[in-house]
């Protein structure tokens, strides 16, 4: 009797973990269904939104059960998605018993993010490279490298205070703009706009945009709309952060136009 519940709990927990780490709705729905099918539950319904899961199994029998999950939009962790995907493959080919699956699932969920120092370095490297790609000089790339590292340190600092995403994006882009204007004012011959463009790349909503398109493509219009709004608001916040600092800078420098 309790087996249905156990299986459904596993399937939903797995969907929860996938969604939390940034998988698209279609993949989550597909995974939950495949797991239910693999454990021989015939009669089920699954509905997934980008921030919630609704699932029921064996509705017309005595051991009917259903589950609802609320899943807040979280940070993307591609490693966990890959691991969970692998696990669901094994479950589907019946290589994995129910109890094993739970321990494996816990392992997948606790794959850590890399060390902070590594993140800081790679954030800087990415920013530097992008600054060069978008037409900056090598010097701009070097400045961008350091600005990017500071940005990532700043983001780690903000994370501890549980700020809203809006504030994080506004402050982050403001910091980037401020730093590159300071470097400019110190007399370094940089193209400050290339430095800013390179360094705001970690904030730019590339993931939200991509996920949103894929949701739309699979016919999940509601989830697509949620991610699309997320992307547009993030872009807007970046614009506000950059804009505010440039306005203040102009004001302080007595309206002197930036190159």
């Amino acid at each position: 009797m309790a087996v249905t519940k156990e299986i459904l709990a596993l399937a939903v927990e797995m969907g929860d973990a996938l969604l939390r780490n940034g998988a698209e709705v279609y993949r989550v729905e597909d995974t939950v269904m495949h797991i239910l099918k693999a454990y021989e539950i015939e009669n089920y319904d699954v509905y997934v939104l980008s921030n919630g899961i609704f699932a029921s199994a064996n509705e017309d029998r005595d051991d009917a059960c259903s589950m609802i999950r609320h899943v807040p939009l979280g940070t993307t962790h591609l490693g966990r998605i890959a691991a969970l995907n692998q696990l669901s493959r094994e479950i589907c080919s019946h290589d994995c018993s129910l109890i094993d699956a739970w321990t494996r699932l816990d392992e997948c969920k606790s794959i850590p993010f890399g060390k902070q120092s590594i993140h800081v370095f790679f954030c800087g490297l990415g920013c530097g490279c992008f600054s060069y790609l978008f037409g900056g000089m090598p010097l701009d790339a070097v400045i961008s490298f350091f600005v990017g590292m500071l940005l990532q340190l700043f983001l780690f600092g903000l994370k501890r205070h549980k700020n809203s995403k809006f504030i994080t994006n506004i402050l982050g882009s403001a910091l980037v703009t401020l730093l590159s204007l300071v470097v400019l004012s110190l007399g370094a011959p940089i193209l400050y706009d290339k430095v800013i463009i390179g360094s705001i790349m970690p904030l730019v909503p590339g993931i939200a945009l991509t996920t949103s398109i894929r949701d739309f493509f699979n016919g999940d219009y509601l989830s697509g709309a949620i991610h699309m709004i997320d992307a547009i608001l993030t872009a807007f916040c970046i614009a506000v952060g950059v804009g505010a600092v440039i306005t203040i800078y102009r004001f302080v420098m007595g309206g002197a136009l930036l190159a």
Binding site: H77, L78, A82, G114, I207
Partner: peptide, 19 residues
């Protein structure tokens, strides 16, 4: 350079090392 740029962002999003 674009390869390194993408690679660093892949690290930020914790992609598996082999990928």
């Amino acid at each position: 350079i674009s390869m390194f740029a993408t690679l660093s962002f892949a690290v930020l999003f914790a992609a598996p090392k082999s990928e």
